[in-house]
Amino acid sequence: MSAATDAVALDRPAPRASGAGRVRQVVALVRRNLTHIKRQPEMLTDVTIQPIMFVLLFAFVFGGSIKIPGVDYKPWLLPGIMAQTIAFSAFIVAIGLNTDIGKGMVDRLRSLPIQRSSILIARAIGALIHSSIGVAVMSVTGLFIGWRIHEGVVKGLLGYGLLLLFGFAMIWVGILVGSAMRSVEAVNGLMFTTIFPVTFLSNAFARTDVMPSWLRTIAEWNPISSLSQALRDNWGIAGIPVRADAPWPLHHPELATLIWSLAITAVVAPLALRAFNARTTD
């Protein structure tokens, strides 16, 4: 009866909207992530309660015994906690992606006529929004403990820009870990035992110049230190003058943050994409 071409055509083709396919895919998936936050606001504790707790802990519990001459510890501490918060973007992406893979959501998405990269782009944007909420909460918290931006709007915004840039780099770490680990528990375990101590091995919470020299070297080369230092410089927050013999990143913290972000992306992104593709192809 009918020709072969009839047999393969759709019965009642659904009307497709024209153009902007990729953008719409990403918007739809980001909206999904934001709906998750709306339905489960406790998801935000990692970027709200937790950093506020650190502010309180360090500013008031340890703060009394951390005396840095000529430095008001509380406002000095805040950029460090922001740097830590943005580093946790990796955590957020890894948990979200791993959950989606584990529950078969990624498979469902892959069975649709969409670009596979939309899944990752949406995760990245979602995580940056998630972290940005945390940075905003930190900024407001900062106002209560004497933190201010002293260098004007442009330099103020430059600081936030550096935070987002570093967050972008950390997202690749998250995609790598989220794709490579077999369970959410494994992701949790790995992240807590790596990212967490790494953020402490820096100048985020404590001065590095009094650390033992081997530790000082590690701490001062740590990208978290570059980022914290860059934020303090740009926002005009008084700190200890950088020693002449301090490593290069502390003398050029903005540039160092930029290079670190690009380097992490350049090294980790291909690994992350490979891990994601390997995990989602069989």
């Binding site: 659904a14 009307p15 497709r16 909207a17 396919g21 719409r24 895919q25 918007v27 739809a28 998936l29 909206r31 999904r32 998405l109 649709l112 006529p113 969409i114």
Partner: peptide
């Protein structure tokens, strides 16, 4: 969500 991802009207 899935309708959007299919790019349907």
């Amino acid at each position: 969500l899935i309708g959007d991802l299919y790019g349907l009207d």
